[in-house]
Nucleic acid binder design. Structure first.
Lengths: 261, 261
DNA sequence: CTGGCATTTCCACTAAGTGGAATTAAGGGG
DNA sequence: CCCCTTAATTCCACTTAGTGGAAATGCCAG
């Protein structure tokens, strides 16, 4: 009744399109090919519907058909759209070069990310390495929001209602240690409010420190700096934190200055 | 009549999904934000329809709304899907590391691309630089098929019917020099058939040599090697061409060996 | 405050999409 | 080699979900 009618002639959106996007999203690192049956299961859609939608996606160039195994793979078009996204991102364009410089100057990794549902996705990640190794960019890589400094900084940066919505989702999906985890997340959020940054080591021997970037006209981003092969220490965290605060301030300045194009 | 009915209850696909994808595609490097009106014009769709579809794309996380200027931007989700594509590409996974090694060994740029409609899109591009500079990856970048060695190698690798279809499209869009250009394209295709590779310099002082990679179960790819700041010379082209032929052969071997997973 | 432009909502219409059932195609033993 | 299982695709009657013109709303500029 009060149940807002989804998918009538109007306000709510387009069902087929939503479903098609959901199919594309079903492909993630680790699932390189999917057959119609598997897609139907994962997305909760009737098989005949999936069959039609995947055909459309193939015709539109978003999926490649793997005839031999009756399955599909993401097509190269998706990376060209991804490239367009990076190219068109004013935030990345403005501070990408600054991130590179900062990484070299401070001798640590510098990353920029924003949210994709309950994950954080890197727009850029500059890995510092003395020999300037090649593998710097892992743009598009996702890390879990609730476990990472990036994610927690993001949570600290968004509106409260949205934050609570997300926290509920984590509660629902985390199987174990939920209570403790959520408390830890809230502690990180408080840290951001107090110090401007939060520090987390969700991967062994990696210390990561992140801060939110709240700007006009774009989603909330998070900046991080991280170091490998170190022990967590509050002194180190606060040193990196102060670098990060200074860097974030500089970035915001630049973005405020060049935004009004 | 004979006009195959598009968009009935079946065989041809889904109209809304196709349109939604077309909207995403309207964002390309150079067009960072688009309003509904502009989208409507570019995609040839009624404005009210675009309004609904963009809303859906926002809800699905593919577009970000820029309230201040009543327009949209590609959202970060698209790069996470792009990342999944690269992660799931068996070809890129297999030969990406080989490309890196080859680039270092031969001291030149090595690229891997495939087609997105009438453009070639890089899956990977290893730029050789003595100081191992950072900016190596331009994955997702597009270059015109008819003007590049990559594109012409690709054309040489695909089925003839498809090739002729594409050539007709070039004829239609090229404003000038069509005759000469098409002849040049055909010359390159013959070169591939004769020598295994073709050489083109569509950018000043860059010599690029490319060869097709025709494999089972995946689209046709093209590999290229290129050098900056050189004069075009047949001797140089044939030297690089022989490197490329050898490298491509090695790649095909590896791919044949590890395909049957 | 008013006029012009752009976007969104409304709404009657019906084509377009849906999904269960039937059909076809694809391996895998026997 | 052929049958049998399993999965994908096509059919088709149904009707909902999407459409697009027109009206309404919202937004700036002057």
């Amino acid at each position: 009744m009060a149940q807002a009618r989804r998918y009538a002639g109007g306000v709510d959106g387009n069902r087929s399109l939503e479903r098609g996007i959901e199919i594309l999203r079903a492909f993630r690192p680790g699932v390189d090919t999917l057959g119609n049956g598997e897609i139907a299961e994962r997305c909760g859609l009737p098989r005949s519907t999936v069959s039609r939608l995947t055909r459309t996606l193939v015709n539109s160039g978003m999926l490649d058909e793997v005839r031999t195994e009756r399955s599909y793979r993401l097509a190269a078009s998706v990376i060209s759209i991804g490239h367009a996204m990076r190219t068109g991102s004013p935030v990345l364009n403005a501070i990408g070069p600054m991130m590179r410089a900062e990484s070299a100057k401070r001798r640590l990794n510098v990353g920029l990310a924003t949210a994709d549902r309950t994950m954080m996705v890197y727009l850029e990640s500059i890995r510092y390495s003395p020999r300037a190794a090649l593998r710097n960019v892992v743009a598009g890589q996702q890390v879990p929001m609730e476990l990472t400094s990036l994610g927690r900084a993001y949570l600290a940066g968004i509106a409260e209602t949205e934050r609570e919505r997300l926290l509920k989702l984590f509660k629902r999906r985390s199987t174990a240690a939920t209570k403790a985890l959520l408390a830890d997340v809230r502690r990180s959020i408080s840290a951001v409010e107090r110090d401007g940054y939060c520090a987390v080591s969700w991967q062994p021997a990696v210390l990561a420190v992140a801060t939110p970037m709240v700007l006009d006209g774009v989603p909330v981003y998070a900046l991080n700096m991280s170091l490998q092969n170190v022990d967590r220490s509050d002194a180190l965290a606060s040193e990196i934190g102060s670098y990060l605060n200074a860097f974030a301030a500089k970035c915001k300045e630049v973005l405020a200055g060049r935004e009004p194009e």
